[in-house]
Design a protein around this nucleic acid. Structure first.
Lengths: 267, 267
DNA sequence: CGGAACATTGAGAGGGATCAATGGACGTGG
DNA sequence: CCACGTCCATTGATCCCTCTCAATGTTCCG
């Protein structure tokens, strides 16, 4: 219930190792257009409001000021940076991390195609987290002033913006529940199931997935050490719930994972 | 830095035990007006946008459809309830809790006068958490449709709504950092400092505070058992950092608390 | 005054962190 | 194409922080 409510996020590839993430339109095709319109984008159902007429959609197309490419390991933005735009992820995969004054940091989320990133910056006009690409990533940058301007005119867009922000709040609540209440195996099971769920929403089977992040990053997100993450993966594999090969995970028994999340030992 | 960035929230009373929370206007005065205008409210600087002209403020007054009183222990809303309004807390104190399918629950926040509650419901049109009053509480109910309607016309209000939601996201990030990275004493120290900070913003000294929640609720919020909360309070008291008398806390050495949050043992 | 709810404190156990060493995978450069 | 170095993952051993179970004390309210 809450588990599917959107804890986390994850990237992956359908079956083959190197296959790219985009469900349909290939990157090469995109290159032909200097600017791909939202109305044309195959991710629009994930990141744009539904129920707009053609005229409204044309206005929304004007939201995207530019497309950015972020190389793996590079930052889309960093804590402290001035905020002026939200970013829709077109392809690729990012993590967001917050840091305390003394340097310890925590992964607060993994973000994949179709999601909106940068909401944290609105409050103070400055970002409060780092957004780091975990693989080469392409984002559509939407100046926030322009978003607000158009949202004042198009009801559906306005409401959509509110829904996205509220959804992020709900997601965070789920992570809090996870960090505050669950034990290691429950956290990791919930993590994998969320993964599966989100991949399914993007047209993948979800039983085969490729982790884009290290064990350390998973551990940071889940409030565990990297060793515990690794050990728990191994335990799941021993019990026949999953198959682990480095970052390739095959989910064999998602029902059992659900039982683990629910505190129910085994079946 | 992140510590003051708004982890949590807390109510209290300035010095005397039974004193009410409202900084100035007493409840009795309010009763004379069927409806207290936002433009008149002494909390407006906390919950309303600044920089509006008189005409705009009059429109915003129309946001509040009614005032609700929630008795201690009662729910303002519950997970699953249909969402249709946000609530501004006028006086009192609430907690929000989320529950997983199998019944374990977690406090996700404590909310005091001047804060907006109910943002979680926008995403799915249904609330995802319970909001329970920890003392008799008065809220101003603002139908969300009306908020959106007026926000489309008044830029300052629109932006304010966005800031409030973003602020909630930033707060949640801080809680994640706390739950994922800190140890018991660090969590509790951060909790107390956040308390102090928020009280200060409301005109209280903040060195004397009265907890409105039980040890168990603190523990749930911080991901600790109630015994650990109690023990840590005692340890802080032994070390001369605070004085504890049931729910009355006196902060004697907030600098030392800051050191604890920063992982620095003692000084 | 008695009971319920809450807080404190102690003893013991366990889950996960930490420290440490080994092994694979990948990329770079010879 | 192979060698090497780096990064990452796995696995083991040990320790300790926090949970759990339990008993007692305190406050508040009917």
């Amino acid at each position: 219930m809450l588990a599917k409510a959107t804890f986390f996020t994850l990237s992956q590839a359908p079956g083959t190792v190197k296959s790219q993430f985009l469900p349909a339109t290939g990157a090469k095709v995109d290159k032909q257009f200097i600017k791909v319109a939202c109305s044309n984008c195959n991710l629009r159902e994930l990141c744009m409001p539904i129920g707009m007429d053609a005229g409204e959609f044309t206005r929304v197309d004007g939201l995207v000021s530019k497309r950015l490419t972020v190389k793996r390991g590079a930052a889309l933005f960093r804590a402290g940076d001035a905020f002026n735009a939200l970013h829709a992820i077109r392809s690729g995969f990012l993590k967001t991390t917050v840091s305390s004054a003394n340097g310890q940091s925590q992964v607060t989320g993994f973000h994949m195609a179709g999601e909106i990133i940068g909401l944290d910056g609105i409050a103070s006009e400055h970002h409060t987290c780092d957004a780091i690409a975990l693989e080469d990533t392409e984002v559509c940058t939407m100046p926030f002033e322009r978003i607000e301007e158009i949202a004042r005119e198009i009801k559906a867009l306005q409401h959509h913006v509110h829904k996205i922000m509220s959804g992020e709040i709900v997601r965070d609540q789920g992570v809090m529940l996870l960090l505050g209440n669950m034990r290691a195996d429950e956290r990791l099971a919930a993590f994998l199931l969320n993964l599966q769920h989100r991949l399914h929403a993007r047209g993948f089977s979800g039983s085969d997935l490729i982790l884009r992040m290290t064990r350390e990053e998973i551990g940071s997100y889940l409030g565990l050490s990297l060793e515990t993450v690794s050990r728990t993966f191994s335990k799941f594999a021993e019990d026949g719930l999953i198959t682990v090969n480095q970052r390739q995970i095959h989910i064999q028994n998602s029902e059992a994972l659900k039982c683990i999340v629910s505190h129910e030992l085994y079946h």
